[in-house]
Design a protein around this nucleic acid. Sequence first.
DNA 1: ATTCGTTCTTGATGTAGGTCAATGGTGACC
DNA 2: GGTCACCATTGACCTACATCAAGAACGAAT
Lengths: 193, 193
Amino acid sequence: MFEILFSYFEKSFSLSEADKVIISSVLSERKLKKGEFLQREGEIVRYGAFVAKGFLRSYVIDNKGKEHIVQFAPDNWWISDKAGISEGIKASFFIDAIEDSDIILCDLAGHLTMMSKIPGYTALFQAGIQKRAAAKDKRIVHSLSATAEERYNDFLETYPSIVQRVPQHMLASYLGVTPETISRIRKLQSQKK
Amino acid sequence: MFEILFSYFEKSFSLSEADKVIISSVLSERKLKKGEFLQREGEIVRYGAFVAKGFLRSYVIDNKGKEHIVQFAPDNWWISDKAGISEGIKASFFIDAIEDSDIILCDLAGHLTMMSKIPGYTALFQAGIQKRAAAKDKRIVHSLSATAEERYNDFLETYPSIVQRVPQHMLASYLGVTPETISRIRKLQSQKK
DNA sequence: ATTCGTTCTTGATGTAGGTCAATGGTGACC
DNA sequence: GGTCACCATTGACCTACATCAAGAACGAAT
């Protein structure tokens, strides 16, 4: 299972055998069944997770009892509560598996070890932070200004592979609309063509 | 002007005289008149900025020609295009001054120097990244799920000092509503009491 | 003092998308 | 194979907010 993480890393930088030893000694593996939780809101956060296979999501429940999906994490994505990995912090999200999943857990110690010993990791991590921040800014602006249909189309373009895999009420929850609206948008668009 | 930055730092960690020398040799000062730009969309980004005095904002213009404010930065805040400071990247935002402002510029080299020589800075920077990421997540969820009035009230609570200083059409732009809506919300609330 | 620009207010009307409710499809489990 | 959840669809109606338009209040510039 670490092999998947290795080849993920090797898309950005090369790993020596020694690096691989460090990584596998410092991280741990876990399997999640569909529906199983990695963390619940309010629990103490210990790990960030890399999805080797499967599909996770993070979400919050607002004061009206409604779920709002914050992030999808299909294969080869990282998911964590805060940006990066911290420790002793209360989780603000729920994170659970949408499909049976194999994940790799990274705690703060592991993160720090990799940061100090594997420069490529540090660079990748920093770049990831920036990319995510930019994506969040874009999502904020979009959710404030774009129509439901625009957001839907944008999601299709940006994450075509995700659309296939999530039930559409989850897509609705991510986009901040009702499932009915997604249904109507799809109908409209199929008629247009 | 560096004094303001120093005391900002010293709220989190202590600075030696040597640290202060490093900092002031590596950063630069600048004044902006109200309305002046620090950067425009598409320009090459060189600096993150610390607002010593005054008020900046960042915003985008969408394809319908509408402005959307991404961030406000009053005294003692940082503002930058991406999370953190990078170089040779095209700006995705406009950043300009809402009031006459004194700012301190930090380029990538300065950032790296401080990261390597001043551990307190590194810690503060990391913590800042996390706080911002969490704030953005909250804003995303809010903008997808809360009503205009809820978002307005939340902004009042979270940033009471900012509300005083920005014209309300900018507040509207930040919240993703029209100025008319803000006006009506205010009227409603003043009647209630 | 007067003009002008800018911001804020208020009203009338339109519309995107939410809510509610009924119906049909589909897969899991006994 | 039938029952039972769960999910998507569709329609009728409603509401929050946008849009458009017309003043009012304020300060800055001449």
